[in-house]
Amino acid sequence: MKDFNHKHLIGIKDLSAEDINLVFETADNFKEVINRPIKKVPTLRDTTIANIFFENSTRTRVSFELAEKRLSADVVNFSSSSSSVSKGETLIDTVKNILSMKVDMVVMRHPSPGACVFLSKHIDANIINAGDGTHEHPTQALLDAFSIREKLGDVKGKKIAIVGDITHSRVAISNIYCLKKLGAKVKLCGPPTLIPKHIESLGVEVDYNLDNVVKWADVVNMLRIQMERQDIAYFPSLREYSMQYGLTQERVERSGKELIIMHPGPINRGVEITSEVADSKNAIILNQVENGVAIRMAVLYLLAGDK
């Protein structure tokens, strides 16, 4: 078997295309496992994993916990509201607690970009980044690309559009790294105030017109508007945002093609995407959720094997 020579999964930036494909191949196996009548395997028995969430999360936390439990790991959950970590002391204290608990792996979500890098300098356990501020969300990108691969057979050469608030999106950054490494063409679309200058340096194109982008794309990944991360108003109103960047059935039909529609969740129905589109046959939003468990099992398995 090929090696996954990483101690942590902090960002897709650190992975090679081979690494990503190895995660996919491993996830293929786990996807088969989780569709069996008995979904549990003993792979991570005697491994203790701490899920530490300093930001609210339902989907990602549950997905990780399910993945860990299906691998028979011992799981401890720790969550704290972001307000109590605003000065940063809690992370240091948490680090010390983790060291005392002798956990083997840490899954962490934190509002500060680079928080997992910070953690990796202080503790010895394997670290999986479950989202660090506006930096990266690697498992989301892996499950997104895995879902595209599942639907279209391959990611290479496919045209993927990422639409919405790019500036405040860790999903966008990780997706860009992942898709580019796998050979996809990536176009970003959103209000110019929410697309970082210099983003083209990551090898992507930018188009501010959603209709153009929808016509171009094979897959459209609609990002959630991150109102909680916006320190000032980047657009006048949600209404106006929807008018320009909301994905409606009419827009999809105007493209005249079988568009695949993705969303990392949770959805602001009626803002970035209408219910009609989100629940349509073209949407693979729930496949993404299911694949999330398989991808996270694969990542946990591969990192545990590093020991």
Binding site: P113, G114, H135, P196, H198
Partner: peptide, 21 residues
């Protein structure tokens, strides 16, 4: 540069950090 905490450029983009142009 509201929210910016480092020079705005390719490095800030790659780190997901807002920049100070």
């Amino acid at each position: 540069s509201v929210g910016g905490i480092m020079h705005e450029g390719e490095v800030s983009v790659s780190l997901g950090l807002k920049g100070q142009p």
